[in-house]
Design a protein around this nucleic acid. Structure first.
Lengths: 235, 235
DNA sequence: CTCATGCCAATACACTGTATTTCTTCATTA
DNA sequence: TAATGAAGAAATACAGTGTATTGGCATGAG
């Protein structure tokens, strides 16, 4: 590796902006998880020194916030279906798909309020879906409930996914026979209902399970919308 | 601080076990959050060198797993109510209270499968509450849905709590006027539904909101139990 | 041409999780 | 009783982290 092989270092520092920084961080996280995101590595990927980043963010947490907001752009559908139920369903499923594309999102989802432009847009879309179908408070409660459900469900799905990957076993095999610890615990007889669930339950794929639970929750919302629309008559 | 003030160092190394280690870690986390838990600090609190911990755990992640399991012991009620609905409600509320006592739990909840003895016991209790009221698969779906809801809700609640603490503003004041960023965003008119929710919505305390959403989800479960109990007739 | 200003890079610090090496202490055996 | 072995604790070491501080250098104005 002589001098001639090495390219001359750039005369002027490479231009930087938040967009590039966030993109680099996301790339790192997509490849190696959140743990693979370090300010040094992000900067290196942009041919910059670590300290340059502090002109654009003032803490690593802020970088994470920007990453989340960027990911939330992928959640917004091109156009909102008119049917509120369909609209909420789509938003939930798109969130799930986004988290499956960017698994690190599961570690961040719900961890801090999302106040970025895209985060607000997602909230807006969710609220808009129910706007006018009931009084404001009922709508808020509905939105909270639905999103609590799907963030929780997504987090668990990805946690299981990782566990499966780590052990090389499907959740099923792993609980049933090959997971020595779980098998031993179930054999003690102290967890009869759990044992029954593990051995007698048919396992459904994650998407179906997600969709089923979501439908239940939406059913509940539907029921409340009917009884809680006092506000719409007043306006 | 002369030699005479200082106690002699212990001749024999202080005895250690997982229980003590986990207790020390939990104490640290209770005081300063998960970030305050480092193997060095945990060990120091036990008058031991950091490396001694590796006889009891083989990675920091494992320590977290043990902490979660220990916290889950606080979730289990002394006795289970007979009514399935009441049983699930109690489990959810106890989980919430535990997370409020140990806020770090919110960072870990749902992040990994909980396979410790107490984690399994919690799952068992949840499944047991619904055992026999519907076929196994319906019961599993119900348990998944309910716990997805409350883990998601708890996580968000604690995220908001932290944000309030950090800014010194109640969520309300903060959205309404004093949070310059949010105010500015709402003023753009791009988030009409959100603005309406913020300005016209009455704010309820976190517990009520939690309880309300939970009731909705339980309503949904109740509906499905009625229609999905094919299994109980077969056995 | 000189000087001031703003930015970038380098250095520095305190701390992390964990691998490896060194030392101490006790039980066992000769 | 002395020597030897094993075990387990301690110390050291390493590569990495987020971020504060310092130093230099290129570009603008006067």
């Amino acid at each position: 590796m002589t001098v001639w092989d090495r390219p001359e270092p750039p005369i002027r520092p490479v231009p930087l902006d938040r967009e590039r920084i966030v993109a680099a961080a996301i790339a790192l996280a997509d490849e190696g998880g959140l743990g693979a995101v370090s300010l040094r590595k992000v900067a290196a990927r942009l041919n910059a020194g670590p300290m340059r980043l502090y002109g654009y963010i003032s803490t690593k947490e802020e970088l994470f916030d920007l990453m989340v907001d960027e990911a939330q752009a992928e959640i917004l559908p091109d156009e909102q279906p008119g049917d509120w139920r369909e609209a909420l369903r789509v938003l939930a499923h798109r969130t799930r798909r986004t988290a499956l594309r960017h698994e690190w999102l599961a570690d961040l989802l719900g961890g801090r309020p999302t106040l970025g432009p895209n985060g607000l847009a997602v909230t807006e879309a969710t609220l808009a879906a129910l706007d006018g179908l009931a009084d404001v408070d009922t709508v808020m409660r509905a939105v909270e409930t639905v999103s609590a459900y799907f963030t929780g469900a997504i987090r668990r799905e990805i946690a299981n996914l990782r566990a499966e990957r780590a052990t090389g076993l499907s959740k099923r095999d792993w609980q049933r026979a090959s997971g020595p610890h779980v098998t031993r615990m179930l054999a003690t007889g102290r967890f009869p209902a759990l044992a029954k669930a593990v051995y007698d339950g048919t396992d459904v794929d994650a998407e179906t399970s997600f969709a089923t639970g979501l439908d239940w929750v939406l059913d509940a919302v539907a029921a409340k919308l009917k009884s809680g629309d006092a506000g719409s008559a007043v306006d």
